[in-house]
Design a protein around this nucleic acid. Structure first.
Lengths: 226, 226
DNA sequence: ATATAATTTATTGTATACAACTTCATTGAC
DNA sequence: GTCAATGAAGTTGTATACAATAAATTATAT
């Protein structure tokens, strides 16, 4: 599990996700091998894994490149992420045990401190925990896994969002609605509130785009209105 | 794209999905290499890809095994599949163009022939096309991709379901409800109808389980009732 | 001088050789 | 006779060597 190839994979994954390795950067096998002090074989294995994960694109006999996450794809991914979370909320509303609900309530309350102190980093973690708690309460490990994969991929963009002024308070308020719906066992409402909460829209959408490509922002704000 | 490694991957994938290679079957690298007339390297590459896809599990220094799809996981996957399709229907209800709706209507009508002739194989293909049309109308290529991956993985189980008596007619009726909702632009209803349509429940659920393990069927019917 | 073709260089894709680890069997001791 | 320990065999993980393909540069012809 902690073989050189796996370390390599997670390391590269991290660098791509955080944006340290920029889009379309060529990932030369020999250079990477030298850098990590291994042969090309484990490097190739790591690259293959990242390719199937969608983080790297292989052009036959041309090389491996960091996959570009265009604005369109990014929005699409956020939409799907919203659906994962909405599904979790819906299932949680139906399936959550007393203990599950207690944990959700707890995680929700924990967020209060971060909101009051205005600590966005703190809120980021507590927010993550809140969402994770609901995913667990959905009792669908496959959903949890898929959601986790996408979540990691969106990590870099997600974090930026919370920095927006007033976002933390409104995020907390939205959590509140979700919790109420789950407690009431209202699957439909829990689902809808959660989707609204996660999905990027309006001005937040424009902010997000600005973090990727300044140039293409305008024409895509239009598209966002649908 | 059609390199030896890729041919190998799709071939193995097919054999695992169709059940030709049973669960927990050991995938010996040298044997596979001999069988396909290549060296171990491309075999390993294919196995890595299948591992990240979740079809194969690697136990370090022990070997590669066909991942087992237990009843629980299978239900979970069907649930997520239902959510993908529900999302597609929801988005289609909001975003579908006149041409999109026309294509959906067309695909739906095409199913009529199969229902009347009672040809389950024919219906299988036309049903697939119907669902694909809605996915396209959702205008989210990432969703389309994710859905496609899971769809292929569930292929073997899905096909069996249609054989159930009367399932074709009720499936068609459910399609009808979905189409109506999309045409009316009722996102909520389109979504819910589609989810109900796809998700496995009730007796169909028991039928499905029987195809995997006869033994574990009973105790899981209980779980299905939630 | 420019365009095209050929050769060279660099990089990916595959094969083979070697090392590390795990498992099974055999041998020895209690 | 049984359990444990050591060794042998087999399999995965890694390194290196070789082949194939594509890009770049240079040389030649128009």
């Amino acid at each position: 599990m902690t073989s050189p190839a796996n370390i390599l994979r997670s390391q590269l994954e991290e660098e791509i996700i955080t944006g340290l390795l920029k889009e379309n950067t060529r990932l030369d096998e020999v250079s990477l091998a030298e850098r990590f002090g291994v042969s090309r074989t484990p490097v190739r294995e790591a690259l293959i894994q990242l390719t199937t994960a969608g983080l790297v694109v292989k052009r036959p006999h041309k090389g491996n490149f960091v996959a570009e996450v265009g604005p369109t794809l990014l929005i699409e991914m956020f939409d799907v992420m919203g659906e994962y979370e909405a599904m979790a909320a819906r299932l949680a509303a139906r399936r959550a045990s007393k203990e599950d609900i207690e944990k959700i309530r707890e995680a929700h309350l924990d967020c209060t401190d971060a909101v009051l102190s205005g600590d966005t980093d703190d809120y980021y973690y507590k927010n993550e925990k809140f969402h994770k708690t609901i995913l667990t309460a959905a009792h669908n490990s496959f959903l949890e896994e898929q959601s986790g994969i996408l979540h990691r991929r969106l990590k870099a963009f997600r974090r930026l969002q919370l920095r927006t002024r007033g976002r933390m308070q409104s995020s907390f308020d939205e959590h509140n609605e979700v919790v109420k719906a789950i407690e009431a066992g209202d699957a439909q409402k829990a689902s809808n509130e959660m989707r609204k909460h996660v999905v990027v829209q309006g001005e937040r959408f424009a902010d997000l785009l600005a973090t990727i490509s300044q140039r293409n922002a305008e024409k895509l704000i239009h598209a966002a209105k649908e």
